[in-house]
Design a protein around this nucleic acid. Sequence first.
DNA 1: GCGACAG
DNA 2: ATCTTGTCGC
Length: 252
Amino acid sequence: MNFPELHGWDLSATEAVALQRELAQRVDLTPRLGDCRILAGADISYNKFSTTLYATIVVIAWPSGDVLETQDVVAEQTFPYIPGLLSFRELPPFLTAFRRLQTVPDVVICDGQGIAHPRRFGVAAHLGMWLGIPTIGCGKSRLCGTFTPPDLPRGSTSPLMDHDQRIGTVVRTRTGINPLFVSPGHAVSHEQAVEVVLMASPKYRLPETTRLADHRVNLLRQQANAAAAESPAYPDADSSENLLNSDTPEAD
DNA sequence: GCGACAG
DNA sequence: ATCTTGTCGC
């Protein structure tokens, strides 16, 4: 995919919040979503206490579910996780992966919120503004807003409200299972966002795109861990003590 | 000041 | 998000 640089990423948390307020003004949710035959999912994983991020994009055909393309990226974290500023941590590696993508998806389903965000600029809205294609926020939990739990049957919904404004929809994708938090990211309506998420989640709680990306990104990380254990860049302290100290006199 | 807080 | 075994329920 090809897309222009929207802004730089060398920001403080304060600057990031200011940028969100600025960019949120330009969010355009005018529905421009046509056919949904090519869906994309994106996910990130990392080792606890590590700053290395593993990112994966999975593109699938629908309704066949066939995987059309995947892209993996390993990158160092450039921004920490701060609630409300998730996109500044996750978008840099995602954008690298999307640049390498040969297939242009009809819609991207993101892990996290779209406009259901304190400044109406969650990760899906931010990604959509960069890519210029329809995106949907589909979080497993709530960032902000109030709601009444939807009825138990799959397909039941309940509006996610921030005071008097609707910012998303709480959607039950499996009967009796915890609902998802769905909101428009870019170029989609509330209704379309819900429709797409329900379509992409026929059997499990999470959309197939999210499940596939989640599975693959964890394989990527675990394989990297195994490779690192097999041929470490630097031997661990215990096994290297003798080698490292062989020409170093002991202290008195 | 206190509680909440996507991944 | 990650760590982590078994277990309760449809």
